[in-house]
Simulated scan of single mutants.
Amino acid sequence: MNKDELGSFLRSRRERVRPEEAGMAAGGRRQTPGLRREEVALLAGISVDYYIRLEQGRGPQPSAQVLAALSRTLRLSGDEHDYLLRMGGQAPVRTCSAPEIPDNALRLLDRLEEFPAVIVNVCWDLLAWNRMLVALIGDPAARPPRERNTLRWLFGGAPALLSDHAGQARQAVADLRASGRYPDDPDVRQLVDELTATSPLFAELWAAQDIEVQRTVTKRAMHPVMGVMELDCDVLPLPGGDHRIVLYTAAPGTPSHRALQRLRALSDSRSASA
């Protein structure tokens, strides 16, 4: 259980719920936006003192039933609900050391010849990639291992490929927070501390405590040769660990799909001449 993070998360979500959304009267003078602590306690069926202690990081470990009631009261999303359970000590804390990438995942990566694909961990480190990803963003192997990280790219000078910097930044930070690894995972904690100290934008987004697992998003990319491409980015979990495979595709027949086909042809010709 992480008492401080639980308290901070409860407070941030309480302030986001409008009284009328929870069936409470919106009238009267309110010192803070959202619900009052007394209202949250009433709606969740717990004592006001107990809820205050939870927000202040002084309460005992809440039961799964209490966390479920708070989740309903605060109108949490599925990802936020899972995060609340982890912070409340009602979900197992995963180990810090990531397992090796399974051989079958690497074979899958090799078979994805038509579209760019990369395997990442919860920190968004690029661990393995195919030839099409190299054609799309350049070869990650040309960078030191520490710099093969999407978050460091976003908050330390994003590659020109990314045109929607603000959107990509928010989604990446919300996904990192949703992993539930902070602050118990030293690698995640080190990354958060580093970016908080060096990037005001990251510090702002991290403090917002948005929770959202990245699954499918559309990215507008500017390739130096192929021009503008709108790509569907699917983030698919790999079984047996926290690794995910990120696949960039485009609908058949679209200009972006034709650009990917030309990109593959260019990659094939360069590989053949190498």
Rank of each mutant, 00 (worst) to 15 (best):
A172L: 14
P159D: 01
T218L: 12
V66L: 04
S271A: 15
R181D: 15
L247T: 02
L191F: 06
Q65K: 14
Q214I: 13
T196G: 06
H165Q: 08
A41V: 06
H243Y: 14
S256G: 05
R86H: 07
I101T: 13
T73R: 00
A259G: 06
T196F: 08
P237H: 09
T73Q: 00
D110K: 13
A251F: 15
L205P: 08
L109S: 01
T218V: 15
G57E: 07
A142Q: 15
L43W: 02
W206Q: 01
A98T: 10
T198N: 03
V120Y: 11
K3Y: 06
D4W: 11
G27Q: 10
S269W: 02
L151V: 10
L195C: 09
E55A: 12
R58W: 13
D82S: 13
G167D: 10
D185S: 05
A166C: 03
G138N: 14
R270T: 13
G88L: 00
R94V: 08
A166S: 15
Y50A: 04
D234V: 14
M229H: 05
Y248P: 06
Q31C: 04
D187V: 15
E39N: 06
V173L: 00
L127G: 07
V93G: 09
R244G: 04
R29N: 07
L10T: 07
L85W: 06
Q209F: 00
R29S: 01
A128Y: 15
Q261V: 11
E114C: 15
R131E: 13
G28P: 12
G78H: 10
G240F: 08
E230P: 05
R258T: 11
R30I: 00
D210W: 14
A250Y: 01
E38Y: 03
T218D: 12
P224T: 10
W129Q: 02
A221H: 09
K219P: 04
R29H: 08
G88F: 03
T216R: 15
A265H: 09
S273R: 12
D210Q: 04
P99N: 01
P186F: 05
L85Q: 06
R143I: 14
A166P: 01
V118L: 02
P186V: 12
L109V: 08
R86S: 11
